[in-house]
Nucleic acid binder design. Structure first.
Length: 577
DNA sequence: TTAGGGTTAG
């Protein structure tokens, strides 16, 4: 319903804008001005602005000898209004008509290539850049850096970037953003450090990418530095920068700071609303997430598909099943949004976590006609493990292993389920299957940030210079924990491939090492924040409750799915994860 | 004599 409304609206908007343009065009012909390339260029741009590529193209075909400027403007406009294929077509027309391209044409067509992920085409255009002598043009070079970075060719992007004699802020931003977008957050932060040293002035786009990198790393120290800089230099907190800050604070463990930023922003859009709802959700604050969602419906922009993923996920992590069901129904009923696979995954996850395994399974089976995605089976399998339903778990795992036989995580989950049921014979079978297929358990790692520097630990890691002190301190902590009543949860390591690794693995999981290091390196009373790439294991979850009491510290762990705040012997997730 | 490259939520 809603999309139909927007379609009609767009259609009528185009129509109402087109008429005066057509009148203007008619006027040009009547007054014999239709030979003026200047006026025709203007008219082409305006047609493009209305979204009517058909009229733009038709007008172009009537122009006998377009010049370089007209082509550049046309390529630029078609790219700007998201007709990348037309942009590439007009570029081709220009080259084959032997019109000498300007540097402007290259910036624009490279952007169009990036939009369609046309790596091969972009490479050809890179050759043209060199052939036409624009290899050292600052704008074209920045365009190339941006193009290669967006296509994930970070090495090539970096080569062009390093070869620049003058590096504009946009070139720096493109390179930093490329690293961040492809998950190389450390490289993004590192390059930002070099940018600081080089004396180039940052702008809000620099900070948006750096803040996203901080979010990935849990690097709140650097994130706060950026926030301070923005405040001290009077940079306007636009909606994009504000959203990046909300996301950074939420993902670095400080959701109340995220809320402060949200409240201080002059303008909110659907992304900023979604960011704060999602932030509350990942910390298990479902009530606050739903209150904001209510407020959004009352005075914000209409929620979109991403907003509903955040809402359903917030309900899942807080056990708000009824509200989740209602939101799922409202999605189509009130907002005309068709649930995508991600929404179904969130529903299965929510119902499964709440122990409503039959309903979750039914939701999954109802999608049989379209074929439920592996992610739905994964959510279902996770729920079976959580609620110790071995029979259903095995049934679900069979589907999942048939669909994705190469994902080691599925085998690990299944072996956990067998281990819980005491079926060590089956654990062994699953383990052998993994060995036969040459699959290895995904390596878990945890990071902790101290004085704006991020330290990474993996299981049994001994690469750190202070390894001896860290292990000694961790052993002391575990000893004190045991004296206080902690019992190791050995199930958590049943999936380790080698027998002798188990005891060792349990004692020196990456999150325990990162916590020990964090405690050693920070002052008493300071909160420790750890980021883990996988879900945290049950044993570490149990141990950290004790450690939070022994050290009188708040310990925050962000795992693959959500946040855990350990304080005074309990966790904010209430063991509901 | 008209114009450019970079940035948010899952």
């Amino acid at each position: 319903m809603a999309s139909k409304y927007f379609l009609n609206r767009r259609f009528s908007l185009s129509n109402s804008c087109l008429k005066p343009l057509q009148q203007f065009h008619a006027h040009l012909i009547v007054s014999n001005s239709h030979q003026s390339l200047y006026l025709l260029t203007k008219l082409l741009t305006l047609y493009c602005t209305t979204g009517s590529i058909k009229h733009t193209h038709q007008l172009f075909l009537t122009i006998p000898s377009p010049d370089s400027f007209l082509y550049s403007t046309l390529i630029n406009s078609t790219t700007k209004f998201h007709f990348p294929l037309h942009s590439i077509y007009f570029y081709h027309r220009m080259i084959s008509s032997c019109v000498w391209p300007s540097s402007y044409a290259f910036s624009a067509v490279l952007k169009a290539c990036a939009e369609v992920s046309g790596l091969l085409l972009g490479r050809v255009i890179h050759c043209h850049v060199l052939a036409f002598g624009y290899g050292l043009n600052v704008f074209v070079q920045a365009g190339l850096v941006s193009f290669y970075a967006k296509c994930g060719e970070l090495g090539v992007a970096r080569k062009v970037f390093d070869g620049m004699l003058v590096r504009s802020v946009v070139a720096w931003n493109s390179m930093i953003s490329g690293y961040e977008q492809y998950g190389y957050a450390n490289e993004a932060v590192g390059l930002f450090g070099r940018m600081r040293d080089s004396g180039v002035e940052f702008d809000s786009a620099t900070f948006v990418s750096v803040l996203s990198a901080c979010s990935q790393l849990g690097a709140i120290g650097l994130g706060c530095w950026v926030h301070e800089y923005v405040r001290n230099h009077g940079l306007y907190l636009n909606v994009v920068l504000g959203t990046a800050l909300i996301n950074m604070y939420a993902k670095c463990g400080n959701v109340s700071k995220a809320r402060e930023v949200f409240d201080s922003m002059e303008e909110h859009n659907v992304a900023s609303w979604t960011a704060i709802i999602s932030g509350y959700g990942m910390h298990g604050h479902g009530k606050e997430a739903m209150e904001l969602f209510k407020l959004m419906k009352f005075r914000g922009p209409p929620p979109n598909s991403v907003t509903f993923i955040a809402v359903l996920s917030a309900c899942a992590h807080a056990g708000l099943v009824q509200q989740g069901r209602e939101a799922f129904a409202a999605m189509t009923r009130d907002h005309g949004l068709v649930p995508k696979m991600e929404h179904h995954v969130a529903m299965v996850d929510m119902l499964g976590r709440a122990g409503l395994l039959d309903e979750a399974f039914q939701h999954l089976k109802d999608l049989d006609s379209v074929g439920p995605a592996p992610a739905m089976w994964t959510a279902m399998l996770g729920a079976c493990k959580m609620h110790k339903n071995v029979n259903l778990g095995v049934q679900v795992a069979e589907h999942l292993l048939a669909a994705e036989p190469e994902i080691s995580g599925h085998y690990v989950l299944l072996s956990n389920i067998y281990a819980m049921a005491g079926r060590t014979d089956r654990v062994e079978v699953v383990r052998n299957m993994m060995i036969q297929k040459g699959l290895k358990k995904q390596v878990g790692y945890s990071t902790v940030e101290i004085d704006q520097k991020t330290y990474l630990f993996s299981m049994g890691d001994k690469s750190h210079v202070e390894t001896t002190a860290i292990y000694q301190f961790l052993d002391e902590l575990m000893q004190q924990s045991r004296a206080a009543g902690y019992v190791p949860v050995s199930e958590s390591v049943m999936h380790e491939l080698e027998e002798e690794e188990r005891e060792y693995a349990l004692r020196y999981h990456s999150e325990k090492l990162a916590v020990a290091f964090g405690l050693l390196k920070t002052k008493q009373g300071m909160t420790i924040t750890i980021v883990k790439n996988l879900r945290m294991c049950e044993d570490c979850h149990a141990a950290l409750k004790f450690i939070s009491v022994i050290c009188s510290r708040e310990i925050i762990i962000r795992d693959k799915l959500r946040f855990h705040h350990f304080q005074n012997g309990s966790c904010s997730c209430m063991d509901y994860w």
